[in-house]
Amino acid sequence: MNTPVPADWYLLLSAALFTMGVIGFLSKRSLITVFMSIELMLNAVNLSFVTFAHEWHAVKGQIFVFFVMMVAAAEAAVGLAIIIAIFRVRGTLTVDQIDRMKL
């Protein structure tokens, strides 16, 4: 009943999620979904952190994840604010059309 799962399965899942995040970054056209892909990658990395923390019985691995969450929260706040600002200036969120530094 209590069948154990090999730790590397978690890592593989993490790798798969990370790769899908990268794919999203490369293929999605909307700035918001690109940002979501970044969050996906962060979560994938968090998963491997937790897995390793479990593997080596290290509490600090989990605390690292905690800090990542904090930073992600801050980043989301600032990033989304930037997105709003960009939208206000450009009128679009299609990344292929936002390729100029000057206004």
Partner: peptide, 30 residues
């Protein structure tokens, strides 16, 4: 999955911070 790995606090934080706060922010912006 975090819970399965024995990280109860992170599982809660994941739900509250990520699925809750951050994603709410996302949907608001969308």
């Amino acid at each position: 999955l975090y819970l399965l790995l024995g990280a109860e606090f992170l599982a809660m934080a994941q739900v509250i911070v990520y699925a809750g706060a951050i994603m709410v922010l996302f949907t608001f912006v969308v």
